[in-house]
Amino acid sequence: MKPLLLLHGALGAQNQFEPLLSLLPEQVPVYSFNLAGHGGAPFSEAPFQMETFVTQLLQWLEEKNLPPMNVFGYSMGGYVALEAARQQPRWFHQIFTLASKFAWSPEAAQHETAKLQPEVVQEKVPQFAEALRQRHAPQDWQELMRRTAAMMQQLGAQPLLTPETLAQITVPVRIAVGDHDPMVTIEETVQAYRQLPNAQLQIIPATKHPLEQLHWPLLAQALTHFFAYA
């Protein structure tokens, strides 16, 4: 029985997975943790960038010293898991990603970061701002959003996962995307899937990007099917 690690996305936190836990087989050991600056975890002294999160994941795996793990990575969490598996595949059994964006370019980064303006979010969507404040306290959610925007701009200029690096990932992977996701297109997901040498593709119906709007039983079924828990 392989342990399962849940990795949250940008501006997310490990407690977002709570609705999923009761839907997974009881015998499966489930782990999760907050990436630096998220969910109340302190910001790292290292630069706030994707490479730092990859390093954090690999350090966590080494410290736990568990057998090769199954990983579910949502959005940025999936991106982090794939790059970590490319660097050190020995820690990974299988990886399931959902809503991970692969088509990064300066234009794509500009489009996404236009939505990450804390002052505008506070004024226009105060309920979301309050949810972020509660999710990331005692850290400053506005600072987290600014750093996330800068990270996306860097990713747009120099993506970690390219056709060349995706082709180096030998761990079995299932790449999933919601059919109504406005941030991650089916087309870019299919292109990434085709570059991976040992991959499956899943398009989840009636699904947008926000994790909170996910149909949890459907996700649990997909995870259980892919990871083949007895």
Score class of each variant (00 low, 15 high):
Gly78Asp: 08
Ala129Tyr: 06
Ala103Pro: 00
Ala84Cys: 07
Arg90Met: 05
Leu116Phe: 06
His93Gln: 14
Ala108Tyr: 00
Pro138Ser: 02
Glu107Asn: 04
Gly77Glu: 10
Arg90Cys: 04
Glu143Lys: 10
Leu98Cys: 09
Val80Glu: 08
Gln127Cys: 04
Met76Val: 04
Thr148Asn: 10
Gln117Met: 14
Asp140Trp: 05
Ala85Asn: 05
Ala103Trp: 01
Ala114Ser: 05
Glu130Gly: 09
Gln110Phe: 03
Gln87Ile: 12
Gly78Pro: 15
Gln139Ala: 11
Pro126Ile: 15
Ala114Met: 07
His93Val: 06
Arg90Ser: 07
Arg135Ala: 08
Gln110Leu: 12
Gln134Tyr: 09
Lys101Pro: 05
His93Ser: 12
Val120Ala: 15
Gln127Asp: 14
Ala129Asp: 11
Leu116Pro: 03
Ala137Thr: 08
Leu144Cys: 01
Gln88Glu: 10
Leu132Gln: 15
Asp140Pro: 04
Pro118Gly: 14
Gly77Thr: 03
Lys115Gly: 03
Ala108Met: 04
Lys101Glu: 01
Leu82Asn: 01
Ser105Lys: 09
Thr148Cys: 12
Phe128Cys: 08
Ala103Met: 01
Arg146Ile: 09
Lys101Met: 09
Gln142Lys: 14
Asp140Phe: 04
Ala137Met: 02
Leu116Trp: 06
Gln117His: 15
Ala131Trp: 13
Gly78Met: 10
Ser75Cys: 15
Arg146Phe: 00
Lys124Met: 14
Ala99Pro: 01
Arg133Ile: 06
Trp141Gly: 09
His111Glu: 04
Glu112Met: 13
Arg90Tyr: 05
Gly77Tyr: 04
Arg86Asn: 03
Glu83Arg: 15
Met145Cys: 11
Ala131Met: 06
Ala85Leu: 05
Trp91Ser: 10
Glu130Asn: 13
Gln94Arg: 15
Phe102Ile: 01
Tyr79Arg: 13
Ala129Phe: 12
Gly77Met: 07
Arg90Asp: 07
Pro106Gln: 06
Arg133Thr: 13
Lys101Gly: 11
Val121Met: 11
Pro138Gln: 07
Lys124Trp: 10
Glu119Trp: 09
Val80His: 02
Ala108Ser: 08
Ala114Glu: 15
Val120Thr: 03
Lys101Tyr: 02
Gln127His: 09
Ile95Tyr: 09
Pro118Thr: 09
Ala103Lys: 07
Met145Glu: 05
Gln94Pro: 06
Lys101Ser: 05
Leu98Ala: 06
Gln117Ser: 03
Phe92Ser: 04
Leu132Ser: 11
Gln117Leu: 14
Arg146Trp: 05
Glu107Phe: 04
Pro138Met: 11
Gln122Leu: 13
Ile95Gln: 08
Glu130Lys: 07
Ala114Thr: 07
Glu143Arg: 12
Lys124Asp: 06
Thr113Gln: 04
Arg90Phe: 07
Pro118Glu: 14
Phe96Ser: 10
His111Gly: 01
Ala109Leu: 06
Arg147Val: 02
Ala109Glu: 00
Thr148Phe: 02
Gln122Lys: 13
Glu123Ala: 15
Glu83Tyr: 15
Ala85Gln: 01
Leu132Lys: 10
Val121Tyr: 05
Ala149His: 10
Gly77Pro: 13
Glu112Cys: 05
Pro89Ile: 00
Val121Cys: 09
Gln88Trp: 00
Trp91Thr: 00
Val125Met: 14
Ala131Thr: 14
Pro106Phe: 03
Pro118Cys: 13
His93Tyr: 13
Tyr79His: 11
Ser75His: 03
Thr97Gly: 05
Pro138His: 05
Leu116Arg: 09
Leu116Lys: 03
His136Arg: 09
